[in-house]
Amino acid sequence: MEWRDQGVLLSMRRHGESAAIIEVLTETRGRHAGVVRGGGGRRMAPVLQPGAQLDLVWRARLEDHLGSFAVEPLRLRAAEAMADRLALLGLGSVCALLQFALPERAPQPVLYPASCALLDRLGQEGWLRRYLAWELQLLEATGYGLDLSRCAVTGTAEGLAYVSPRTGRAVSLSGAGPWADRLLPLPPGLDGQGGMDRDGLLAGLRVTGHFLATWLAPALGDRPLPEARARFLRAVERS
């Protein structure tokens, strides 16, 4: 078995004295693990950092084997993010969430390009808004997408102000009625329309965080969300 593709490195752990086991995200093969011979050495250390764009050749005798990767660096994003605390934490959060949420070897035709586009813009103007949109895409790609297009109660697309924490559907101000205090605030712009300020961004991250924790995590064996996301959220709150 052999294939060649590009991918984003999600994690690396040393294996024995000189090898490493890496996990990458590719468009056609999804989240995929493999051994890199010599990957634990000094020469490969700058290449095998989370977020790196790699040219990958995977080989194994049988398809369900772990297999081994031959890797060539294409773009080392970690080095660019290291000077910017928020960007570095964002990179950590993206990689940790992808590793946490995605099934192994399932193609990611939407989430892969979205993840690459976000990682390429870490630290640039408006990247936090992109990060929030990416978390919505992550929920969508894992089967837990939110429906923010119209009110679940009245059917209107106007005046949407809340998200139901149970169904993930938008609720308008008039449709919320006496249940408003039990609903999550829907910040303007979360549906991708119009601008969004810092408070809106934080409210949006709380909405996605709620569904990541209450929908996605229980489906994955009730593991807690990666600490990297909590650290990123705290840094956004302090910024």
């Binding site: 950092q49 080095a79 993010a81 290291m82 605390r85 934490l89 950590g92 650290r231 302090r238």
Partner: peptide, 15 residues
């Protein structure tokens, strides 16, 4: 170390 984990730790300590 100039790794993602090393620099994340550095920023955390600075904070």
């Amino acid at each position: 170390n100039a790794t993602v984990d090393g620099q994340t730790t550095a920023h955390y300590i600075a904070e």
